[in-house]
Amino acid sequence: MNAPVVVSNLSKTFYDEGRGEVRAVDSISFQCREGEVFGLLGANGAGKTTTLRMLSTILAPSSGTANILGHDVVLDPQGVRKNLGFYSATTALYPRLTARETIDFFARINQYPEARVKERVEYLIQRFALAKYADTRVEKLSSGMKQKVSIARTIAHDPLIIIFDEPTVGLDVLNALEVQESISELRSEGKTIIFSTHIMSEAERLCDRIAIIHGGRILASNTLAGLRESTGQHYLEDIFVLYVKAGQETV
């Protein structure tokens, strides 16, 4: 069976006034299997967000290809987005919509079957325990509630592929745990999840396979057990540091 996400030699070059030419993503390739959580583990500025933005078609690749369920990110961006849920710390909510309206709007705009929208909205309100605040405007919700509404709007159209770009950044421990639980639940529902983080414990807990990304390049990609075996290290932090140092020496 074909992998739902196939990335081949994907690159992105920026021109930054301070740093000059920046190869934010440098010819990376990976595939995600159906129903798995694929983790992109890297420090800040490693190229995680840029990679995920290219997959969500917000940014155009400088070279290489990426396919989501057979839709090319350059040739068929709309087809890609229809099958994708994208969550990131920078994707804000409309403050003047209520939680219910937000989920409803994103379900409809992502072309979820019209007849089932109401049912889907109610399901998500119940699922994320939003009933009490469903008709409160987003601007009046606490950050934890906003987080829940954000995840609900990401999956409002029930996409097969979901991207979580550093979803726990800025959250307290309890809210971060809730987000992690949501991701686990989605995996158990058979969704394919691409999850980026710089927090080792999150990657250890959630990811079926982990790609270590640094300087825009993927240095290693394997299951946690595989990474342990190939490095002889137990802790992911040690494994990460080992690969990053080796990567820097190679450069």
Partner: peptide, 8 residues
């Protein structure tokens, strides 16, 4: 950015 990641 949220809007640009939708199917429209």
């Amino acid at each position: 950015e949220t809007l640009l990641t939708t199917a429209v």
